[in-house]
Write a protein that binds this DNA or RNA. Structure first.
Lengths: 339, 339
DNA sequence: GTCACGAACTAGAGCGCTCTAGTCATCATC
DNA sequence: GATGATGACTAGAGCGCTCTAGTTCGTGAC
């Protein structure tokens, strides 16, 4: 910085002004400084600038590495954080690196707010964290109102699934459960509600899970059911689970959607591939990301300067999902499952 | 820090000593400081500590968000960086956030070294970057020797594929190409070499790609070939491509491995799921990560203090892949494709 | 008793920025 | 021509650490 200042013939303070993009430098000087910086291949040290300023304008994000939908969310977060003049610092969660450890590094970075994608921490822990700084839990609802929440209306999503299948004439509709994953309880609840509407249908919850593997296992349980009692349709916890289910069911000689209709959840990229063509409930990653940044930025930018603690989070933001009908669902046949 | 020092009745310098874990504090004081810190919920500010010290002990990583194999690599990198007392800072690449932009933020963080997972930048750009600081390209070979490289022996991997299929009696073996992706050229070369060994077989390269989508498209091209000329085995650029291929081929009524054997590449988690059971060439994410950290740490820790420029990278580290035989390959039948 | 020595601890100058409180022209205003 | 305003710029005190160059004190050797 010193060198750039010298080369441009100005003070260090002026260089700072130019790089922060604030008012206080003439157009001519601004260009001279930028030119000098370019020649010296200089770029401001983010560590130092964050240290110097009262605000770090930094948002920490924990995410599961390799998780497809988290990838989609990150993309949206990057875009909107950038637009709101915030920087993102990522902290990955892996089987050997816990979410708590990931959060710890974010705190040490002095992030102003923390974004947790699909958090698996206990509510009490989240509340303790939220007492220190603004926290928003994405995808996973957190009761109590201390922790900000941005999520899809999971229950409504499953209602869409079930109503769609009902409308196609299905009466035996199973749900492939998601266990303790973020959002699973709500989806299960949505399934139950929809099944109890008139005319009420017999509920059937099969243990499922988050990945293709668990979908495949659920399919084996499904195939173990006698053809006459077998559900003619299945709503899965998510797309990957649905895809694993379809794979195994097809390998067993059944047809999808001829013998069994399947609906997923998320609308991951793969679900839209022509050879997969999964009917699913779309979560809008783009909007989720936008809302996360908006709620956090609102809290941070409005709060009394350097005193974010005390600003309460806005009410949970719940985004309505949308049914995307593709080729994995079809009208129920009279005789139920064939073969 | 001030507060912790006051509470423990020592100087700020002593607190620093304790938190850095260096010698110079008695056991009793150490505990007193730690206790005070715990009570005040204090943790050192990483920005400030990096600023203060000559070394940042920070490694920057660019990766594709949502890319399964990058996720596996990140996990390994986290583990080994931690063991070598380095910190990782992640910078995600998305369709709307270029690799160059990702690198830019890493430079601004003053990372000591940069790790590029599956870089898609041009060699010239990589070399320019490598002139500033140690860079290692993972998965993607870079000629010239200026940029460190840690990768799997892609060519050998495809030779393993082809030899395996040859051994099963296959003679018409196609390759689903990976286009311009990292490693694709080497795999294509490995395929060619293996096909030209005695007895030489007729090469057949079908356009493939990196995802299931492209594998599915390749399958359609494959199905368009007359049953008599159709390859009886396929080596795919990667697992996802192989999986898409298998899906479509099965939907068309062919059997895998009965009618066509398929070999993937990577050994992503999904390939090992029982209902997928893909024969594949395993890339060892754990070892790749370990080697990346080792080579970087070697350069950084040995170099003349605060003068990394000039230390040349070690020779490329090439890790031998391993064939994992599962259920997607079987001996060739006399008549080639059935159905 | 004196001295050297090492262990335990401290003072204080950075690190590369930000940002408040200035200085100094220049220009319109009455 | 004195008076502010305004715009362009600078000095210098932080930010929260690290780290060198001390100081202090207890211990053992002689």
């Amino acid at each position: 910085m010193e060198h750039v200042a010298a080369r441009a013939g100005v003070s260090r303070a002026l260089v700072s002004i130019v790089f922060r993009g604030v008012a206080g430098a003439s157009e001519a000087t601004r260009e001279r400084v930028l030119a000098a910086a370019r020649e010296l291949d200089y770029r401001p040290d983010t560590r130092a600038s964050r240290l110097g300023s009262s605000r770090t304008r930094t948002l920490g994000v924990t995410f599961s590495v390799g998780h497809a939908f988290h990838g989609d969310l990150l993309e949206s977060l990057y875009t909107h954080a950038d637009a709101a003049a915030y920087e993102l610092v990522l902290s990955g969660v892996t089987p050997s690196r816990s979410e708590a450890a990931a959060v710890e590094t974010l705190l040490a970075e002095r992030c102003e707010g923390i974004i947790l994608l699909g958090s698996s921490q206990e509510t009490a822990q989240l509340e303790r964290l939220a007492a220190r700084l603004p926290v928003v839990s994405v995808l996973r609802p957190v009761p109590g109102g201390e922790v900000g929440v941005v999520r899809t209306d999971d229950a409504a999503g499953l209602r869409l699934s079930v109503e769609h299948l009902r409308g196609l004439g299905h009466r035996r509709i199973a749900f492939l459960d998601g266990g303790r994953t973020a959002g699973a309880a709500e989806r299960r609840r949505g399934y139950r509600t929809a099944m109890r509407r008139s005319p009420p249908l017999t509920e059937m919850v099969l243990p499922g899970g988050v990945s293709e593997l668990e979908g495949a296992e659920a399919a084996r349980a499904f195939l173990g059911i006698g053809p006459r009692e077998r559900p003619t349709a299945v709503a899965a916890f998510n797309d990957r689970c649905a895809i694993g289910f379809v794979d195994v069911v097809r390998q067993a000689g059944l047809h999808v959607p001829g013998d069994v209709s399947v609906v997923g959840f998320d609308d991951i990229t793969e679900a839209g591939y022509p050879h997969v063509a999964l009917t699913t409930v779309r979560q809008d990653a783009e909007r989720l990301g936008a809302e996360v940044v908006r709620t956090l930025a609102d809290r941070l930018d409005s709060g009394s300067p350097d005193q974010n603690i005390g600003t309460t989070p806005a009410a949970p933001v719940v985004i309505e999902p949308e049914l995307v009908v593709r080729a994995s669902t079809a009208p129920a046949t009279r005789r139920g499952a064939r073969s």
